[in-house]
Design a protein around this nucleic acid. Structure first.
Lengths: 210, 210
DNA sequence: CCTTTCCGCTAACACTGTTAGCTAACGTAA
DNA sequence: TTACGTTAGCTAACAGTGTTAGCGGAAAGG
């Protein structure tokens, strides 16, 4: 029973909402959550803000996700899938493994700075959505792509298995480490061109020694 | 009104005591906060938990810290100072710059895994206590120590300035990157001995090419 | 028509960070 | 001693958080 103008307006909002209702609620929640994270950072994401944005009440969200952490976790998986797609594109585009390694490093760099919110969710230490309990096979996407390229190079040069493993982790580490250091924005190298140059030089030096 | 030197000294004593007590409270809060972070992780640190632990009411904490973020920020600074002390010890212990680089990498590794809570606060992406707004000169401690050692090596081999800069960032990145990857515990290299071996091999390969 | 299912809501619980404002104890001066 | 000003440390509130129990009404099935 409607008892006031306020309640009537509210119910009209709900009615309008039902008219332009979209099919999948889950994807809507994810999209809205991503936008909120992009706008205000993952720290200020709240269930109520999502509920407001999707124009549903709070408990509806819990019909699709176990909890807030779960939403952030799914978002990070989306991030991994997005990165994976660009890596696979590069894999097809560069048959030469040396060129491919350069392309992978570039792709990782570009991904991180074009999608800092994803990068934080995916690789942030002590993130609510990651850690020992939350194992993501997707986490190793970048390593696996590097590994393939380095193995291809190793076959020509007859290097052994463990050598390939070490080189793979070394490459992954140097690229990931540099990007996360720069992302913390505490480095006093402020010129982003300079930062990218450091990456390029380092990658080049690494490749030369393969 | 003060009428004699004796009374003045007495009042100074009271003032000093008050200052001492105030500082004492601050360090007590920090100690308790650190313990709580160690026990339950920074995510579950709360002002009320700190208040309970120090057996004072909540607003007392705000006499010593602007907000919760400030407490985490100060904790991270303590972490940097702790790391700095061990780096300086290594600096004195290893006159040979090659040996010193190895020691620095070891120290960084040990620091991270002995004090994961500090490491998270210091280097966690998207941490409430770090980021663009919060500039910490202490952040560059590790880089500066590496830089000195690499410069010393470069002088013997007549390398130029920019080469030193690149090598410094490359070394920092590879050590930091590997540690943070392992700390995320999503890697499928589960044997920690194996992980350390990857670091050692990578560091060795890096040093060989200096 | 009545009954059953179930969608989406309200309202609550137990927390969180933060602060306004009071009380009581303290040091100081008369 | 008494009176006064300072201030330390308190209570209680505000506005927010994640999460869930339980209800109402609409739709579906008979």
């Amino acid at each position: 029973m409607l008892t006031s103008l306020g309640e009537w307006e509210e119910s009209m909002g709900i009615l309008e909402r039902k008219i332009r209702q979209k099919e999948n609620m889950r994807t809507t929640i994810m999209a809205v959550a991503l936008q909120l994270v992009k706008d205000e950072g993952w720290q200020s994401l709240s269930i109520r803000k999502i509920a407001d944005a999707i124009e549903y009440s709070v408990p509806v969200i819990y019909d699709h996700f176990a909890n807030k952490e779960d939403i952030l976790f799914e978002l990070s998986l989306d991030g991994f899938r997005l990165l994976q797609r660009t890596l696979e594109k590069n894999k097809r585009a560069y048959p030469d493994p040396f060129q491919r390694l350069r392309a992978y490093a570039d792709a990782y760099w570009n991904f991180a700075f074009k999608n800092p919110e994803y990068y934080q969710l995916m690789y942030g230490l002590g993130m609510p959505c990651s850690g020992p309990g939350k194992i993501k096979p997707e986490f190793n996407t970048f390593r696996d792509h590097i590994g393939d390229a380095i193995e291809e190079i190793a076959q020509d040069k007859k290097k052994d298995e463990s050598e390939v493993c070490f080189r793979t982790y070394a490459f992954w580490s140097v690229v990931h480490g540099l990007i996360s250091i720069v992302m913390m924005r505490c480095s006093d190298i402020d010129d982003s061109t300079m930062n990218k140059k450091v990456l390029d030089e380092t990658v080049e030096a690494f490749i030369k020694n393969l």
